[in-house]
Amino acid sequence: MNRLPSWIRQHLAALRAVAVLTVILGVVYPLVTTGVAQALFNEKTDLIGQSFTDAEGNPVGKYFQSRPSAAGYDMLATAASNLGPEDVVDAPGKPSLLTQVCARSVAVGRLEGVSGARPYCIPEGVGAVLKVFPDRAVSVNQACPAQPFVSAYEGVKVECAKPGEDYAAGRTVPIRGNATAVVPPDAVTASGSGLDPHISVAYAELQAPRVAKERGLPVERVNALIEQYTTGRSLGFMGEPAVNVLALNTALDKG
């Protein structure tokens, strides 16, 4: 083979290198790792979150609810929403991230019997956003005949949004309002994994009275379970305290 021109030799070496390294790294290494890992460690069972809804997708009251998921907790189609921080104007059939947040906030508030109000949201659960033109303003997420959440903006009249009309030319102005949020942030945002097994302690505590009531348990008992299934920060400083919803609900079911 030394007779071969060097560029062919090089390609032969490359070909052999890919083959040899594939065997070592692509077959031997993962198999050995699997063997050793399974011999040494047990697999955990509550890593993946699930949604605690009925067949219609409505929350089941006796269970703590997981966070919103862009993937519907389907492990074969994991995803995040990927909507941007200024995604505030609804499109037909495509509610903006702001409106999704507002809608979730209202829904959670209704479910837990607290206020679902948030900054930049109107009570109907859509984003409080104006498209401002020189002579008028449009509450762009409120389709007519809804009553605009404000009547005037900087001296111009605010109208409801006429479906089908293009408001692209207007300047986008989100209106903060003066609401303060009760529903915690993780309850109104979709997770990154789409499988987030955790909720914040605040969201769990918000849900505790409802779960206790549905199950006929004292709230203290539920709160104790929350505490039991709360993972603190690793080593005291890594990550955030989080409540594993599946583990908590399983524990509740076991009584």
Binding site: V88, L98, R118, C121, P174, R176, G192, G239
Partner: peptide, 24 residues
Amino acid sequence: NATVPQAVGAAMEGKDVRFGVANS
């Protein structure tokens, strides 16, 4: 600092609870 994180109260969209905002 943006409309949605302000509405939410934290830049939690697309982040998992166990990591939180800072570690993400």
